[in-house]
């Protein structure tokens, strides 16, 4: 009926989409360009000597090369250390969030006990606090426990975040009460019911929380910046923004390697990511 209208709409929608795919294209092409070509093209913007005109981006490299990528992965142990640091901060955090959060979410969603509404309200308030508010309390504890400047200073406060509990509770809400009653009739205790019925059926909620949690942890800047003083503990997110222009090609390759896991997890987990975002907006 209104094919024509859709044609216009699609064209209009392409503009913001190009802003997104364009950025990813730039990242990919930049990582495949050699140091000399990059320095020549980007030099003006980065204040390198001997350049007069304006910078341009090598959208299609003159001489595509895997050399920077090979150098990065084969000869740059510092990069590996930082990539490993990022993994070491992100994965235990997400794993901990699920181990600690899933039982709590199950209790809020499917068990009835005095104080439930009040406690859940407390979780919602805590979930809404920005880092500016939580950093001082976190610091006081981490300092008292002697954990400042260790990976635990970033991992532990992240593990006990209230947000994943909220998302997973929304996921468990989909488990029908009739199944729980059936399990109880079969003589299953609360723990068995949780493990045998709750966990398998709550997988979408758990995946939603994991995808959101991973993206958040992989991107984190504030927490490592505040709680980690030793540069050898720093994740990529602190190092990449201050890369020197002398190692442009390496920096581009490193940027792509940091981007890739987050984007891949996004593409595979998009359905759960959307579910998670929707859950964060559902009224209680």
């Amino acid at each position: 009926m209104n094919r024509k209208k859709h044609w216009w709409l699609k064209t209009a929608l392409c503009v913001p989409a190009v802003l997104v795919w364009g950025v990813l294209w730039c990242m990919a092409s930049g990582a495949l360009t050699g140091q000399a070509e990059l320095a020549d093209a980007l030099g003006p913007a980065l204040g390198l000597p001997g350049s007069e005109s304006y910078a341009r981006w090598p959208l299609l490299p003159d001489a595509p090369t895997l050399q920077p990528m090979a150098e990065l992965t084969l000869d740059t142990p510092q990069f590996f250390a930082m990539f490993w640091n990022t993994c070491r901060l992100a994965f235990p955090q997400v794993l901990g969030q699920i181990l600690v959060g899933a039982p709590a979410a199950w209790a809020f969603s499917r068990l009835r006990f005095p104080g439930r509404r009040m406690l859940f309200g407390l979780y919602i308030v805590l979930m809404l606090l920005p880092f500016q508010v939580t950093m001082v309390p976190n610091y006081i504890v981490l300092d008292a426990l002697g954990l400042m400047d260790t990976v635990w200073a970033v991992i532990l406060p992240g593990v006990f975040s209230a947000f994943p509990v909220f998302i997973m509770a929304k996921g468990f809400d989909a488990v029908p009460h009739s199944l729980l009653e059936a399990a109880a009739l079969d003589g299953a205790g609360p723990l068995q019911t949780f493990v045998r019925v709750g966990l398998p059926l709550g997988i979408p909620g758990i995946l939603s929380a994991s995808v959101l949690g991973f993206i958040e942890a992989w991107n984190a800047i504030e927490q490592p910046m505040t709680f980690l003083k030793t540069p050898s503990l720093w994740p990529l997110s602190l190092y990449l923004p201050q890369i020197s222009s002398s190692a442009l090609a390496l920096a581009m390759a490193a940027s792509l390697v940091m981007l890739a896991p987050a984007v891949l997890i996004f593409l595979f987990g998009q359905k759960y990511l959307e579910l998670g975002i929707q859950a964060s907006g559902l009224k209680e």
């Binding site: 990449l240 940027s255 940091m258 987050a262």
Partner: peptide, 11 residues
């Protein structure tokens, strides 16, 4: 949303 801020800093 998934693109890490740090990775596009140079761009």
């Amino acid at each position: 949303m998934a693109v890490p801020v740090a990775s596009i800093a140079l761009l």
